[in-house]
Design a protein around this nucleic acid. Structure first.
Lengths: 180, 180
DNA sequence: TCGACCATGTAAACTGTTACATGATTGT
DNA sequence: ACAATCATGTAACAGTTTACATGGTCGA
């Protein structure tokens, strides 16, 4: 979906914590931030170039081994300013979260439709796995406790994600039980 | 985001219930289906043309008043087949639901950040309103009861949406309370 | 040496939003 | 008459995905 260049702020936000390469930034979407946003390297590399042109980030070359060069990006003070401005900007719009399964379900008219049970159980598996995955993340990153300092936001969104998956699981289980 | 042409199936799904104009289909995203997907008329009209070219839908002209012509679209048997195939296709991927507020929260490091409270209360207002809106929808459409026939999927997703907003609200309230 | 992973890039196609454009109907 | 709504379309732009393309490093 054509959003408001949120990816730009994600990159600035991540670089505000530490200097990273495009590859590192790409990987960040496989874990942490991946629970809430997705992006491919083919989108990230060009954007990094643009952000550098705009003076929001800068890179230095680092060589690994014999000749493998990486571009280690860091945020500039202008970049920090833009990030801060973004954080201070209200977020007044709730965007419909586009869930393909929910869409299909919308078009199932009858409780007796034989498609219903396999669809629901498939989703239950997916959401149970996601739930367990998030639990593990919480254990690994925060040892199930609210951090006394730092990463408070990260803790909060992980907590929220877990509650969300729990709700999704519970609802699916209830609906499946009720099919009989 | 570049998805898998989900909009196509939404249009087919809606036209499978009854014949509609492009304008009607556009309006459907303001209510019902709008809780789960968004689309503008500028995306819908060209897609309707394409679907007609592909033989999935057909239109007849209906004249209102003196000369206002509307195109009343209906689904063809080929269209029904494609819709059915889609409904039978597994939905094995959970896509990250992109929530800008959650993204911002991720970058708030300290519990003491003065930004935190206004951000959270802004979202609480939004989600409370959404919750109340969904409750009203449920009352209007289903009178708070599971339908004995028809629209079972619609009922389910509305129920799920309400539970989801309830969770979101509860979480926000808890976090705000805990700020003191 | 070989496979997994590190590392960076581009191109094409697709999906989605915002803006531009026009005209008719209906109810007050 | 006027405003709100009905009704349909295109153009430009922005964001996202998939595929193409290349080469280096590290550990078993």
């Amino acid at each position: 979906m054509a959003q408001k260049n949120n990816l730009k702020y994600i990159l600035l936000g991540l670089l505000n914590e530490q200097s990273l390469t495009g590859y590192d930034l790409t990987k960040a979407f496989d874990s942490d931030i991946g629970e809430f946003w997705s992006a491919n390297h083919s989108q990230i590399y060009p954007l990094l170039k643009k952000l550098e042109l705009d003076g929001l980030i800068a890179h230095e070359l680092v060589t690994t081994g014999e000749k493998l060069e990486k571009k280690l990006y860091s945020i500039t003070s202008t970049g920090v300013d833009e990030l801060t401005t973004w954080l201070h900007t209200p977020t007044p719009d709730l965007n419909a979260n586009k869930d393909e399964f929910i869409l299909k379900l919308y078009f199932i008219d009858q409780k007796s439709d034989p498609l219903l049970r396999p669809m629901l159980t498939e989703q239950l598996t997916l959401h149970t796995n996601k739930y367990l995955h998030l639990q593990t993340q919480m254990k690994n990153k925060f040892n199930n406790q609210m951090p006394s300092s730092n990463n408070y936001g990260h803790f909060l969104i992980l907590e929220h994600a877990i509650l969300r998956e729990q709700e999704y699981k519970n609802w699916l289980e209830k609906v499946i039980d009720n099919l009989d």
